[in-house]
Design a protein around this nucleic acid. Structure first.
Lengths: 197, 197
DNA sequence: TGTATATCGATAAAGATATATCGATATAAC
DNA sequence: GTTATATCGATATATCTTTATCGATATACA
């Protein structure tokens, strides 16, 4: 299996459109206005929206409410998505209590850790089996990441959000999204160091 | 200014190569081996490495130590990078105490918040001016993000790592990297919902 | 009613990224 | 020494993504 590729750069822009439109009070908005607010090209915005929603009117733009509905539906905000999280260190807790996920209609059903106030891993299988968990969030140290991943795959989880720095091995029908903070910051460091050149 | 675009997909793979090579004990490694370990195409790996390092030997591969050095130098791990962080909620604290940044040669010089045990914003300007801070990390609520951003820009910070869900306005010589957790998870939700189709 | 203009949608072009192919070469096995 | 093979590097092709251009259309205004 090669890396999960989707060739869908558009996916990363739609949540930004949604965020932007949520702050709009007017009934209509043009692609030009959105583009300027988000520092994007207006043709790109128009193309993105055309792919997802019904279309705007010349000289007027798009109806905000309809557009917002379509975008949210496209990204699946209308469906409840259930997740579990394993590894309740600082990052795990930050995610577990993060209010920003609410808009996604996400429910973090349980949080697991080897000690302390969270659920024990011995309960993992039964809790996941009874709850139709779609997403597993891994916030454990590198050494245990693959084991937790295997456990998640075994209980039928099909998508993993991986905060560890391990390159996880999964069957081809399981999607892994790596969210390595250090690697992400690394890119920014590279960009700022190169920017003077 | 259009969105900070770099058209450098390669930047996101190099830290992964570095991680991978750090775990290698052999003296030589082939592009094929790296590709298999990371679920990438071998041609892609070879092309990436050719761009940065001196080259491998047919039938043998690349010398791990040299390659690692070149990759680290390319990403700037040899240079000390200084950062500050503003907003010491759960995410801010998680980042502040995160050990994974050490390998980047990153120093988070100060952490700021409006109350509590961290530095007060009144000290922001003097601390930044005296320390040649390159990167500002924003982990404050949406409402204050633009203000903090402006403050950072005013003190000469040229790169911002933005964890808020605000689309920040900056001068064209300042780089913004958005790290919106909800939007990132949103993409995974979209992928897993579509994967059955 | 006619004209000007902001905007849309479609098509075409450009740019960036990933993959396929193949000859050249360094080692290993015979 | 000759042959087989893993691997590299270069070139060519395919795919994905962004940007440019332009005619069509809905409103505003003279």
């Amino acid at each position: 299996m090669l890396q999960n590729k989707t060739y869908e750069a558009i996916f990363s822009r739609i949540p930004v459109y949604i965020e932007c439109l949520n702050g709009i009070k007017e009934e209509y908005i043009s692609a030009t206005t959105i583009a300027n607010a988000l520092n994007l090209g207006e043709v790109q915005v128009r193309k993105d929206l055309a792919k997802i929603s019904y279309g705007g009117k010349p000289k007027i733009g798009y109806e905000v409410k309809l557009l917002l509905d379509d975008l949210k539906k496209y990204m699946g905000y209308n469906i409840l998505t259930k997740a579990v999280i394993v590894g309740m260190g600082r990052i795990g807790e930050a995610l577990y209590y993060y209010k920003g996920f609410r808009k996604l209609n996400l429910e973090i059903v349980s949080a697991f850790d080897i000690n302390g106030k969270y659920k024990d891993l011995s309960e993992f299988d039964s809790i996941c089996s009874n709850n139709e968990i779609k997403i597993g969030i891994i916030t454990v140290p590198q050494e245990s990441a693959q084991d937790i991943c295997d456990l998640m795959v075994k209980t039928g989880i099909k998508a993993i959000w991986n905060f560890s720095s391990t390159s996880l091995k999964v069957p081809s029908d399981v999607i892994v999204k790596n969210e390595n903070m250090a690697n992400s910051l690394s890119i920014l460091i590279k960009l700022v160091n190169d920017s003077g050149k």
